[in-house]
Design a protein around this nucleic acid. Sequence first.
DNA 1: GACATGAAGTTAACACTGTCTACTTACCGC
DNA 2: GCGGTAAGTAGACAGTGTTAACTTCATGTC
Lengths: 199, 199
Amino acid sequence: MTETQKRPYHHGDLRQAIIETAIAMLNEPGGWQFTLREVARRAGVSHAAPYKHFPDKAALLAEIALIGFDRLHVALASARSGAGNATEALVAASRAYLVFGLGNPALYRLMFGAEIGNSAAVHRDKRAMGAFDVVMDLLAEGQAAGLIEKRGVAGQAASVWAQMHGLTMLKLDGMLRPERVGEDAVEAALASFYEGVFV
Amino acid sequence: MTETQKRPYHHGDLRQAIIETAIAMLNEPGGWQFTLREVARRAGVSHAAPYKHFPDKAALLAEIALIGFDRLHVALASARSGAGNATEALVAASRAYLVFGLGNPALYRLMFGAEIGNSAAVHRDKRAMGAFDVVMDLLAEGQAAGLIEKRGVAGQAASVWAQMHGLTMLKLDGMLRPERVGEDAVEAALASFYEGVFV
DNA sequence: GACATGAAGTTAACACTGTCTACTTACCGC
DNA sequence: GCGGTAAGTAGACAGTGTTAACTTCATGTC
């Protein structure tokens, strides 16, 4: 659309355009601290237009966080379906989790941060828990097959998720110093962790 | 100081007052998104005064994050000195870690977030790594005493920290749903985790 | 085709922010 | 007492999030 050929008064699908523009801006310096006005400018509308689709900036961030959970769920389900037994699937899912988190740092941080104002509502959403269900299922399968230590599945699932989440966050924050925990700390930590989980 | 009895032109220790006021505001709704102007108001100075002590808001947040690491280090060292053998000390340190993180949610999030602009510099600071050293030492001691599985200490240390950090963050985010992981997920996860670490 | 209604835009305003500059006050060393 | 500098203040600037009132146009009904 050239300068002289303006977009029609009605955008057509501004809500989606705002979401996509905001996700793109997440990956720029400043991450989610982009401004709604800049999102509107890039989408080619006035600064007040987004308020017809989202009550405020926090609502837009909440929607993006849920999209992140959707994508994580897909990544884990995909890793699971391509693996062999439950333990292989669990390791594959863990790697997929880390690949996702480390490959989408700003989105991952937003998903688990308190920035979205009503993070409790986001984290209660079933879309947020879908990814966790994959882990629960694999642990139950592994225990049933005698491949995983028989402990409380719930506590074990929490432990597995904590390990994946903790490694992702510490790596993103640059806190896994090579001089302290070696060059490939994530791999080493995963190996150490699952050594204590598998039979 | 009454309304008519103004503070002398020179505050005396404004830098410290700004830090303390900002830490207090961290625990209010909005966390670190407080405004420097409001910090200055509460400290009883003009909105530009903080710029004589901190180049910008991010620098103030960075200093507060380091203070958080200092406090975490003290909590871990204290837990260690009050425990028996290395495994008891490791469990005690883990609990102290969780108590700290869960008791100071906004400060803990700031310590590990990307909000402070130059989080890399903060996380490279030796003050940030002090807490981690306590964990490294305990693992080495435990392995030497034959109480902990002999794996690469570095990878094991990363795994232990990831577990503590992951559990703290998931709990803070409200993602450990009782209907999914039970009522006392943190305790259960820690028990499950250390079952796989101790001999 | 005319009309009413409402969605989806725009324009303008408000109150606030972070940060900077120039100025003022006062502390400190000599 | 003076000079230099630290530590304040006053004011300005460019920007923000959000709201209200208005404009444009899409849609449904007759």
